[in-house]
Amino acid sequence: MSEGSLPQQTVASGGAGQWVLLSYRLPREPSTPRITVWRKLKRLGVAQIGDGLIALPADARTREHIDWIAEEIEGFGGTATVWLAQPGSTTQERRLAQSMAEARTTEYQQVMAQAEQARTLTEDERHRALRRLRAELRRIHRRDYFPPPARRAAETAVNALHPTRTPTEENA
């Protein structure tokens, strides 16, 4: 993806936006808490900017999720601090946003491929695929902070599995 195709809201007003950072350390053993925490962070679509340092654009929802994960890390015997920060330059912010948008693009492309495969199935199977892929899209949307063009394309491909929604309508 070229830098120029990044959506406008990435650097809305020229200045870098506010991000919430979580710096954390967890004991190496047992490994279950590490995996639990990493799964939660992954589900939130965080950008990993270092070892034990992750970032998300700051809003009410992301700040709250990160706060609770920090608390959970401490409950596991680790240490965690939550920071609000501004990237030192919009270039850095853009790079961060771009890596996040690329990660989502990969996920959307996987959904799109599955939707295309499902087109040739029987109507029942197609309907099951539609429900499953819509749920998957919802999960990806929740961590899609800088929507890439593939978002729309994946939605279109999934919705086209519904008998009343042909691709031509969708593109209109």
């Binding site: 706060d67 609770w68 920090a70 608390e71 959970e72 409950g75």
Partner: peptide, 9 residues
């Protein structure tokens, strides 16, 4: 609230 007993557990 983070750190309160009546929180996430």
């Amino acid at each position: 609230m983070r750190g309160a007993d009546l929180g996430h557990h």
